[in-house]
Design a protein around this nucleic acid. Structure first.
Lengths: 334, 334
DNA sequence: AATCGCCTTGAAAAGGTTTTCTTGAAAAGG
DNA sequence: CCTTTTCAAGAAAACCTTTTCAAGGCGATT
């Protein structure tokens, strides 16, 4: 059987209280006994039972992460950052992939509740009232990542989507493009959809290019959808010479479509993506894109959640992270 | 505070034993009390404390997954499969990304031990004696995924790497290629490196193409390394018209290198990858590759681990999964 | 009518740790 | 040398659940 504190105590010939003290307040026990206990711990490969501990502390030292789609490359960076932060903070991390399924998400919240995770970071999804209410009923603190809530006061960390989109489109305009399209997210079930669209519009208006305002098609996260959306976009507006995509995966879809139509990128059409996934730098052509600091965002979200969990509140509610336009090979002067 | 079984008992005016029974053996309590208890549970949003439970059952109903590199697209499929299996089996999943760091891996094992996960699936890494011994010392059951051990008797699930590599190279030969190179894994710290190399050699020998045996360069998992390795390979052997890559990411690296050298793929050189990652179908050109059933492998690994955890043993020790060559656009008849 | 047995229920122990309370001993102060 | 203070360390309670054991009540059987 797994050795318990009792076994250690017996071997070291002290009481279990002393063993406990050696682990939690070593300076309070005299050296001779301390070394005996330490030796016993080592010899028995003793590891305190986290169930017993959890029972007392009412804490699991575990954080939960809820992501919509693990196959989306966006989240791998987030995960790394969050995991590193967890290591630093002495927490474990539990990752759950909802596959964009409402019921699944709800049941993961139950699982988190049962496992008594100390807090949850909720990534990218819309914070529906159902989710919110369940979370507060379960008394689980949570922060939002790459999303936010207008209705509720929930801490969040994200980039400035409007500004980022604006920068991307402005870049295209400065390159001399006058006919610009966009592949966006559906507005109903996405948080970043509307602001990125706003940014697109603002850049257009500012440059007097309002005639492009309609040149937008929506896709739902996947390459194939973006390919299809590109087909629609270019069928309706063959004059387009540049397209702003709200995700790198969309940019790849668009470029693949253009490739199949034998339209050169960036020769005839420029394409800019969003996120700066690792593949953005591997694709042919390498993607010009607006980078989100995924790693830092994951890291920051974990820190913020920790702040919330330990202090009960958070110094800055909505945290904006820096985005940055990265110019590579998928765009060109017109 | 979080309601306990006591609060429920009080509200329903029964003993805590009765409450426990309605949750674990409902038929053993008379209907009138049962409904009272159920109502109280509902009203209080009661959720049993998993620490107390774990203390009794000595089980956490959690499985651990150890992966070397979450940024490698290979693992996302694994994770999905394993998570789905966990849901089916009533387990939670804890994913840890070691970043190929030995110490980190060791400390994750400690974390798993402390959290008392019921079992671990250990993916892709070499099972060093240090790992093995630690795992058995901690008495944590584990299975190997996409790796195996020659020294120890450990359950594993993986594809037949030798055969899969053989199939890929044979395909290239059948296409008429006579000068074939390979981008492989380093043999020291990879399990699939040697068998894939063997497969390459066997296909070559069988076709009387032994003169290619030296045309191999190694890379360590990343695109950039593969790019560099391709540079070396083509500098030394400019006659090569086909290259077998042991990872899709390597194939992308090679193709990018050839692109920069203005060598057409598949026009002048054919490239085949390995894994069939989601991007294999998004890249330009779409990759010909030998597919691994990542989802199924993750799923199967979880099932196998569950079998091991519950029965103490496993019916088939080393499980081979089916691979399959998928022909797309990166290869062509010579 | 009495006994047996079954069903339902409550009391209590067990599981492993932390922490408070208590006690005994040693150090410090007069 | 005696009293007070400080310190180390053990005993026991608490955390929340499950499960065993015991008991009470009731119907059925003889």
């Amino acid at each position: 059987m797994k050795p318990t504190i009792r076994d250690v105590a017996k071997m070291a010939e002290v009481s279990i209280s002393t063993v406990s003290r050696v682990m939690n307040a070593p300076e309070s026990v005299v050296e001779s006994k301390r070394v005996r206990v330490l030796e016993a711990i080592e010899k028995l490969q003793y590891q305190p039972n986290s169930f017993a501990r959890g029972l007392i502390y009412k804490k699991s030292f575990t954080l939960g992460l809820l992501i919509p789609d693990i196959e989306n490359f966006y989240y791998t960076g987030i995960i790394r950052g969050m995991q590193d932060a967890c290591i630093k903070l002495g927490y474990s991390l539990m990752i759950c992939n909802t596959d964009r399924d409402k019921n699944r998400l709800l049941s993961y919240i139950d699982a988190f509740h049962e496992k008594q995770v100390d807090g949850i970071v909720f990534a990218s999804d819309v914070m529906f009232p159902e989710y919110y209410e369940k979370l507060v009923r379960c008394r689980i603190p949570f922060v939002l990542l790459s999303t936010h809530s207008d209705e509720y006061e929930v801490p969040s960390v994200e980039v400035d989507d409007e500004e980022a989109a604006y920068d991307a489109v402005k870049f295209l305009i400065e390159l001399g493009h006058r006919d610009i399209g966009m592949i966006g997210f559906n507005h109903e079930n996405s948080i970043s959809g509307p602001p990125r669209y706003q940014g697109f519009i603002r850049a257009l208006n500012e440059a007097g290019l309002e005639h492009n305002v309609e040149k937008i098609r929506c896709a739902t996260h996947r390459f194939e959808h973006a390919y299809h959306a590109a087909h629609e976009l270019f069928t309706d507006y063959p004059e387009i010479t540049a397209v702003f995509c709200v995700a790198d995966e969309f940019a790849m879809g668009v470029i693949s479509y253009l490739k199949d139509r034998s339209i050169l990128v960036p020769g005839q059409v420029s394409v800019v993506g969003f996120d700066n996934l690792r593949i953005a730098n591997m694709f042919i052509p390498k993607l010009t894109t607006v980078a989100q600091p995924m790693y830092d965002m994951g890291y920051r979200a974990a820190e913020k959640l920790h702040e919330l969990v330990t202090t009960g509140t958070v110094r800055v509610l909505r945290e904006k992270m820096e985005h940055k336009l990265i110019v590579r090979e998928s765009t060109r002067q017109r």
